[in-house]
Computed example of a mutant assay.
Amino acid sequence: MSTINLQDRAMGAIMGAYIGDALGLGPHWFYDLNEQYRLYGDWINDYTDPQPDRYHAGMKAGQQSQSGLILNMQIDSILTNGGYNEEDFCRRLDTELFPQLDGTANVGPGGFTSQSIREAWVLRTQHNKPWGEVAGFTDNTEAAERVLALAVRYATKPQELARNVSSNTLLTQCDETINAMTVAYSAVLGMLVQGHPLDENLSSKLMQLVADHQLPFHAMSIPGSKPSGAGTFASPDALLTPSSIARAAHENLIQPAWKVSIVYGMPCAVYHQFPACYYLAARYSDDFENAVLHAINGGGQNMARAMLTGALVGAQVGIQNIPKRFIDGLEDSNKLLNRAEKLAALIH
């Protein structure tokens, strides 16, 4: 178990997510790495301005994308209510975000609006559908990027973590496989905030939580166990993935590490993103800078990769071991630190 205290790990997770999000603002979605190299050089090592004719045009280095801004809403809602309040969170989307959208990708705060948010906006504002009936089948990490705050808040309470993360995910993404993988990522983050390492033994610890009915996955792979019951996720596979990938990471099987994006895939879907994040977070468990920079330099959906990796590694190294330049380079860094500190104070 980590010797870093719980609050410092929690703050590290939130600030790590903010940093990863902002690092991705400039070089977001380069699927042609040669084009990325031409515009940003062979190695990106800091915040950068977006190109004027690409995603997030007009924004500046160190600012938050819409993912970071929605994460702010999630945290502010948690702080107002002391925990997850779905009605309050949905009200914030309705009043703070949706009035700034028009259903197209490049309109909205942060310079880009993801597909799942656009679909929810259409059903909510154009068809007057209630929350609970606006989710679509988008397979991206949009929900994971906001529910990571719930994973931190409920890090010591896996049953509440799973229930709240699943409920929030289903607001915009209705595919149960995406839901299961998002809950699994959140459960991993919760374990890291508690102080468990991302190693070959983490999956067995997660499976013990399944056996204890703390996580809603089937327990069929646990000797002597019975299925968890109706309404649970179809299999425990999303919980078994992290330790297998950690073993590969500890053997340095991908060289250089940024090529994780080529091995697991550059696109936006969770089945590309989560494995890459687990690999980088396990390989650089004590090296925040290398973890997020390898996430960014892999191209493709590098913003999500860096944001989710940043949360995992930030939880392992703690706020005090995140390089100060990454925190100082964030716009409104003091406000972001204040949010992270207040959220961390709620954990017990």
Rank of each mutant, 00 (worst) to 15 (best):
T3A: 14
I4K: 14
N5L: 08
L6W: 06
A10D: 04
A10K: 11
I14Y: 05
A22N: 11
H28F: 12
H28Q: 13
F30P: 01
L33N: 08
E35F: 00
E35K: 11
G41C: 14
G41F: 08
G41P: 09
D42A: 09
N45V: 03
P50T: 01
H56N: 13
G58H: 12
K60V: 09
G62W: 07
I75V: 14
I75R: 02
I75C: 03
S77P: 03
L79F: 11
Y84H: 11
N85E: 12
E86F: 01
E86N: 06
F89H: 06
P99A: 09
Q100P: 02
Q100V: 03
D102N: 15
N106C: 08
G110L: 13
S114M: 10
Q115G: 04
S116Y: 05
I117T: 15
I117D: 00
A120L: 09
H127N: 05
K129V: 06
G132D: 08
T138V: 08
T138I: 07
D139G: 09
D139H: 10
T141H: 01
E142V: 07
V147F: 09
L148Q: 14
L150Y: 08
L161R: 14
N168P: 00
Q173N: 13
D175I: 08
L189M: 12
G190T: 05
V193F: 07
P197Y: 07
P197V: 02
S204M: 12
L206P: 03
D212K: 12
D212M: 05
H213Q: 13
L215D: 10
H218L: 10
I222S: 07
P223W: 06
G231A: 05
G231N: 04
A234F: 11
S235C: 09
L239F: 07
T241V: 12
S243C: 02
I245V: 15
I245T: 07
A246Y: 03
A249T: 02
Q255D: 08
W258V: 02
K259Q: 15
K259S: 04
V260P: 00
V260K: 01
V263C: 04
M266K: 15
V270M: 10
Q273F: 01
F274P: 01
A276Q: 12
L280Q: 06
A282R: 10
R283Y: 03
R283G: 00
D286C: 03
E289Y: 00
A291Q: 04
V292W: 00
L293C: 06
H294Y: 03
G298V: 02
G299E: 04
R305G: 00
M307F: 02
L308R: 13
G310H: 08
A311E: 08
G318R: 15
Q320R: 10
I322C: 01
K324Q: 14
I327K: 14
K335D: 15
L336Q: 15
N338G: 10
A345D: 09
A345E: 14
